[in-house]
């Protein structure tokens, strides 16, 4: 599986993502600067965590105006896999690739801790290696992770099996405990928790490995 990690100004989990991808795939991920307008030939594009453009205006709003976003939308439109983690998820909702929005945490505090999640759906290349209903622990680190969408959108996401991860103990006020969602074509995943930080046991857990294994199996 060939992968690329997009680097925005003030991305800060881009190298975590690249390290996780290299550990899992044995290949270096291409680091793609936000001002580039073409993607290398890759199977997976990762939008990493961080504070792109200092979270100015709204989290992800400026990053969504970057040149590279056109190429990412085209990659997604032809079925290519896109994974948005944390700030990457915020960029995906701003771009319209995923529905809804991520708002200020209900408790108004930045939340930085490991959280327990349930894997809600396994029908996707991202979650196929997990058992349905499995409990996994991924870290979260965000101030704006409070997922919001109108009732109709939430019902639709649930009805179509597109809520992939739910918080077991909601840390941010997200609607229906949603931690991660999929697009309609099931090739774009956005989630607030960080699977790339739980790939190496030295970092305190390996629950994120199955997400990358699923992608490798599906996309190689």
């Amino acid at each position: 599986m060939k992968s690329a990690v997009i680097v925005f100004p003030a991305s800060n989990c881009d190298r975590d993502a690249a390290t996780a991808l290299e550990q899992m795939t044995g290949k270096k991920a291409a680091m793609v600067w936000h001002q580039d307008s073409v993607l290398p030939d890759v199977d997976l594009v990762v939008l990493p965590g961080g504070f792109s453009y200092g979270d100015y205006l709204r989290c992800g709003a400026m990053a969504n105006q970057s040149k590279i976003m056109g190429a990412i939308k085209a990659h997604a439109a032809k079925g290519g896999a896109v994974l948005g983690i944390c700030n990457g998820f915020q960029v995906l909702t701003e771009s319209g690739l995923l529905p809804g929005a991520l708002m200020r945490n209900a408790g108004l505090k930045f939340v930085c801790k490991p959280v327990s999640l349930s894997v809600e759906e396994t029908q996707s290349s991202f979650t196929r290696k997990y058992d349905k209903g499995a409990s996994v622990t991924f870290p979260v680190a965000h101030g704006e992770g409070n997922y919001y969408a109108d009732t109709e959108t939430l019902d639709r996401l649930e009805g179509e099996g597109r809520v992939m991860f739910r918080y077991r103990d909601n840390p941010n006020g997200s609607a229906r405990d949603i931690a991660g969602i999929l697009n309609e074509k099931r090739n774009v995943l956005g989630l607030m928790p960080h699977p790339e930080r739980v790939v190496d046991p030295l970092n305190g857990g390996t629950d994120g490995r199955a997400l990358f294994q699923g992608l490798i199996e599906s996309l190689s």
Partner: peptide, 8 residues
């Protein structure tokens, strides 16, 4: 296009 996110 930019100043508001009309979802919210």
């Amino acid at each position: 296009k930019l100043l508001a996110n009309t979802v919210i």
